[in-house]
Write a protein that binds this DNA or RNA. Structure first.
Lengths: 339, 339
DNA sequence: TTTTTCTCCGCAAAGCTTTGCGAAAACCTT
DNA sequence: AAGGTTTTCGCAAAGCTTTGCGGAGAAAAA
């Protein structure tokens, strides 16, 4: 059950003074005499008094909670971002309530409603894969509830957001492939309505263009973000009469699925087919061959998202600032052909 | 800023009735006439009223929050367990506040204190690697604050806990190695004071014994759970004049670190050295060769931990039940020698 | 008509904290 | 000694909900 926490009332009774006196003493109010203050503080210390956050919340109308909605909590990508959010939240005396939409619009809407009921003071969210309707977020904006997006954003909503420069990173990868002798570079993308898919597509096309490579639309395939669908997409590429000599996968799951499938069909990486993905260091190193990838600044992304959140909570409805994080290319064996 | 939420008072004023009437109507109290009830409910619906959890919490002396402390939030292992906890917490109308100890005792203690200040109703925790002192938990027990452990537990504390049968799983792995012709099986363990390290050590010794293999203490090495230290431990094994022909790594990080190091030194897996680890499916499949491992029932573990928590919150101080989850061996290429 | 019995609703307290304002006591000033 | 200041503290309200108890009015019984 847990014994009741000690309250100001308890202290006041024990000392035979009023609650207000105790409250003031604890915050060094000049109205209270030094001796009284000292006595009260000593008892508070001894009894291990800490103010009741519910009472404070009720009074100040704030819960010090941030609702965080991610598509999936079980990946390093999101858990690392969450760590970043949590760090700066803690610095501000806030804590975060995490929910997962499981890439489902329905669960995302449900999460927003539940968190509102819990009286979170605002939201930090990464859109689900399915999300193509935004009324649940528009409602938040109308009610001036702070909202910031990260990674996946909506073009339709003007909301503070932190993004990674996937367009530039993708271009770098294409150029890197080209410099290593690749001519037919494939791109396995995610759902088309996702901003990150489209950004990287632009980077892909720009990269091809700058390298003087033609755009073959057969080399651009889409998949939802499951490992099975990604393998399917890879097989589609490998069935082409005119096969790709390089594949770029839009995220962790896709890159690894592609790697598995390519190896399974007997192609050598990187000599037959070069490979690159969007992922973090640990996974890239563990696979064989080590995967060339871009280093997504996940922790930093979480920090920046939280910073944006506190800006908007402090300055009221903020200028819907967008932050673009640079992404670096990290070349490993999977894309450096030996012959 | 966020507009103020609607309260019973608002509804009462608008309807010209008392707050108590509104409150009762909303919960179908027989004292309120049907027409009045209907009118009130209609307005509540229209104004989108939801009860204020802070006020409720203050009244009932409960926050509906569970403090969860994990050594590390950035791994699939823990995030999957957290998902399990979160699922059953949500079913009970609770939400969870997650903090990471970063494998540090100091941060673990700090987390306990902060969560207590936040008035969580209890704790679900996995001990940090460093934890060898338990006063911060004894304090909880003394105050009858619900506490349940998972995976890593303390022998000194009698607390409800959910464990995985690492002893049995390790024995199975040793037997599997033996059946595949391995004679010198090494075990890279974690810190000695961790119950999971010791359990698996027992399984290791039992396994050797049952297979009629001698125990060579040089084949049992320890490391802390960092990737660098695990590589170091692997190198130590590979430097032996009488090298191992199989290596079992106690967790994800260790197994992968060993794999990297073994390959780096030019040994073939599994033909020169077989490998097996404790990890989850996704990672095991992605590496090359696919890693033989035991399937840690992470999600289930989280669910069971939360169940234990609610048992102890409902029945007061519960019978400190322990739940042992079975672990299955999943054989993949890394341990099946071809010659 | 008077008394009894329901029906339907409001008062107030409790849970905890902060803070404006009022008040008692002590001190100082002429 | 009398009026003025200062020091030191308490009352009460607000923030929101639940719930025991009491009360007003109406309907039913006598």
């Amino acid at each position: 059950m847990g014994k009741r926490h000690i309250s100001l009332k308890d202290l006041a009774q024990e000392l035979g003074v009023s609650i207000s006196t105790v409250s003031r003493a604890l915050k060094n109010h000049p109205d209270i005499s030094p001796e009284m203050t000292k006595k009260i503080k000593a008892l508070a210390e001894e009894r291990n008094y800490t103010p009741n956050p519910l009472a404070m919340g009720l009074l100040r109308q704030q819960t010090k909670m941030i609702g965080v909605i991610v598509p999936d909590i079980n990946t390093h990508f999101y858990s690392s971002i969450i760590s970043g959010i949590e760090k700066v939240a803690k610095e501000h005396g806030y804590f975060i309530v995490i929910t997962s939409s499981n890439e489902s619009l329905e669960k995302e809407i449900e999460s927003v409603e539940n968190l509102i009921k819990s009286r979170v003071e605002g939201f930090i969210v990464c859109l689900s894969q399915e999300t193509n309707s935004y009324t649940h977020f528009e409602k938040l904006i109308k009610n001036e509830i702070p909202l910031v997006f990260f990674d996946r954003v909506s073009e339709e909503l003007d909301v503070p957001a932190v993004l990674a420069d996937g367009q530039d990173a993708t271009k770098k990868i294409i150029q890197h492939f080209y410099n290593n002798g690749c001519k037919r570079i494939a791109y396995i993308s995610g759902p088309e309505h996702l901003n990150i898919s489209e950004n990287r597509k632009i980077g892909y096309l720009n990269g091809l263009n700058e390298c003087g490579l033609p755009y073959d639309k057969k080399l651009l395939v889409h998949c939802n973000l499951s490992i099975e669908d990604a393998k399917q997409a890879t097989r589609k590429l490998l069935r082409l009469k005119n096969k790709p000599d390089a594949i770029f996968g839009m995220n962790d799951t896709i890159a690894f699925a592609a790697m598995i499938e390519v190896k399974k069909q007997g192609y050598k990486i990187p000599d037959d087919i070069s490979l690159a993905g969007f992922t973090d260091e640990f996974h890239s190193i563990v696979v064989d061959p080590p995967l060339t990838s871009v280093s997504h600044p996940t922790f930093k992304m979480g920090e920046e998202a939280a910073n944006l959140f506190f800006e908007s909570i402090e300055k009221g409805t903020a200028n819907n600032k967008k932050i673009m994080l640079p992404i670096d290319l990290v070349v490993r064996e999977s894309s450096v052909k030996k012959n």
